[in-house]
Amino acid sequence: GPGLTDLFKTEKAAVKKMAKAIMADPSKADDVYQKWADKGYTLTQLSDFLKSKTRGKYDRVYNGYMTYR
């Protein structure tokens, strides 16, 4: 089956995709945050998933999740 690194890459891609969806349409934020909360994502995990070469690119999404939880 898929190894943990593959799983991480898949999760990371999914999280980034959802983060971009929030940035494009902030009204989606609560739905996405709820999904992440259901998956039990911690802020540390989210921070790892949303690492970007562009500093602060996903800060709004991260901060939103922090206040959501």
Rank of each mutant, 00 (worst) to 15 (best):
K17D: 05
L4A: 13
T44N: 11
V61P: 02
K12C: 09
Y68R: 02
K35Q: 13
Q34G: 11
D48Q: 13
T5Q: 14
A24E: 09
T5E: 14
Y68V: 02
K20A: 10
L4P: 14
K12P: 03
Y62W: 08
T42W: 02
G64L: 02
E11M: 05
K9H: 09
A29T: 04
Q45V: 07
E11I: 06
K57R: 09
A21G: 05
I22F: 01
F8S: 10
G1S: 12
Y41C: 02
A19S: 03
K12Q: 15
G1T: 14
D30L: 11
V61S: 00
Y41G: 00
K53W: 05
K57A: 06
I22G: 01
A37I: 12
G56D: 09
D38G: 06
F8H: 12
Y33K: 01
A21D: 09
I22E: 00
A29K: 04
K53S: 11
V32G: 04
Q45M: 13
D31T: 10
A24P: 01
A14F: 09
M66P: 02
K28G: 06
G64M: 03
G3Q: 15
F8V: 10
G40M: 04
M18C: 11
M18I: 03
N63L: 14
Q45K: 07
V61F: 02
D38E: 14
Y33W: 03
M23T: 03
K28H: 08
G1C: 15
D25A: 04
K39V: 07
T44C: 15
K17T: 08
L43G: 08
K9R: 10
A19P: 01
K17Q: 10
G64I: 02
D31M: 09
P2F: 03
T67F: 11
Y58E: 01
K53E: 11
A19K: 00
D38R: 08
K12G: 06
A13Y: 07
Y62V: 15
K20I: 07
D25R: 03
D6S: 06
M66Y: 07
K28Y: 07
K12A: 14
K35M: 15
K16F: 05
A29F: 02
T54C: 11
S52E: 07
Y65D: 02
Y58N: 02
F49V: 04
K20V: 07
K16I: 15
Q34K: 13
R60F: 15
L43F: 06
F8A: 10
A13W: 08
G40N: 07
R55G: 10
R69G: 04
A21H: 06
K17C: 12
D48P: 02
G3D: 13
S47D: 07
S27H: 06
M66N: 07
K9G: 08
G40I: 01
A19T: 03
L4E: 13
Y33R: 00
K51R: 11
K12E: 07
Y58S: 01
F49A: 06
D25S: 04
M23E: 03
T5R: 12
F8D: 10
K12M: 13
I22R: 00
G1L: 11
S27G: 06
T54Q: 09
M18D: 15
D25V: 03
M66S: 08
G56I: 05
Y58Q: 01
L46G: 00
K53T: 10
G40V: 01
L4G: 11
S47V: 09
A13K: 15
L7E: 14
T42C: 04
D6E: 09
D38M: 09
T67D: 15
G64N: 04
M18S: 06
Y68H: 09
K51T: 11
K17G: 07
D38S: 11
Y68G: 02
K39L: 10
A14P: 02
P2M: 08
K53P: 10
D31G: 09
A29M: 05
K9D: 10
K57M: 08
S47Q: 12
K16M: 09
D48C: 15
S47C: 12
L4V: 14
T10Q: 14
M23Q: 05
K20L: 08
V15T: 03
K12D: 03
Y58F: 08
K12L: 05
V61A: 04
Y58W: 10
S52F: 05
T42A: 03
T10Y: 11
G40S: 04
Y58L: 03
S52Y: 04
Y33V: 00
T10D: 13
V61E: 01
W36P: 00
T10C: 15
D25M: 04
D30P: 11
D25Q: 05
K53L: 04
I22V: 13
V15A: 05
G64Y: 02
L7R: 12
R69F: 11
A21N: 05
A29R: 04
K39N: 08
K53D: 12
Q45H: 07
A24V: 11
K12R: 12
A24I: 10
E11R: 05
L43Y: 05
T5C: 15
K16Y: 04
E11L: 05
D6W: 03
M18E: 13
K35G: 07
D38L: 08
A37M: 15
E11A: 06
G1M: 12
K17M: 10
M18F: 05
R55A: 13
M66V: 14
L4H: 12
N63V: 12
D30Q: 11
V61W: 02
K12I: 06
V32R: 01
K28V: 13
G56C: 10
V32T: 07
Y33P: 00
L43K: 03
D30W: 13
P26V: 05
R69S: 08
A13E: 10
Y68M: 03
P2V: 10
D38Y: 06
D38I: 07
D25Y: 04
G1V: 12
N63I: 15
K20G: 06
L46C: 02
K57Y: 09
G3T: 14
G1N: 15
D38A: 12
L46W: 01
R55F: 07
V15N: 02
Y68L: 02
G3P: 11
Y33F: 09
Y33N: 01
Y65P: 00
L4R: 10
T44S: 13
T54E: 13
Y65A: 00
L7T: 14
K35N: 11
R69Q: 15
L4N: 12
Y41L: 10
K16D: 03
L50N: 00
K17L: 10
R69Y: 11
K12Y: 04
L43I: 06
V15R: 00
M23A: 03
F49Y: 06
G56E: 06
T10A: 13
G1F: 08
A21I: 13
G64T: 01
M18P: 00
T42D: 05
D31F: 15
S47T: 10
G56Q: 05
A14Y: 10
W36T: 00
S27V: 04
F49D: 01
A14L: 13
K9M: 04
K53C: 07
V32D: 01
K17H: 08
T54S: 14
L43H: 04
D59P: 02
K53N: 11
G40K: 05
K51C: 14
K51Y: 08
A19E: 00
Y62P: 01
S52P: 05
K28R: 10
L7M: 12
S27L: 07
A24M: 13
K57H: 06
G1P: 10
A29G: 06
T5D: 14
D30N: 12
T67S: 13
V15Y: 01
K28S: 08
W36G: 00
G3C: 15
V61M: 03
Y58A: 01
A19F: 02
Q34H: 12
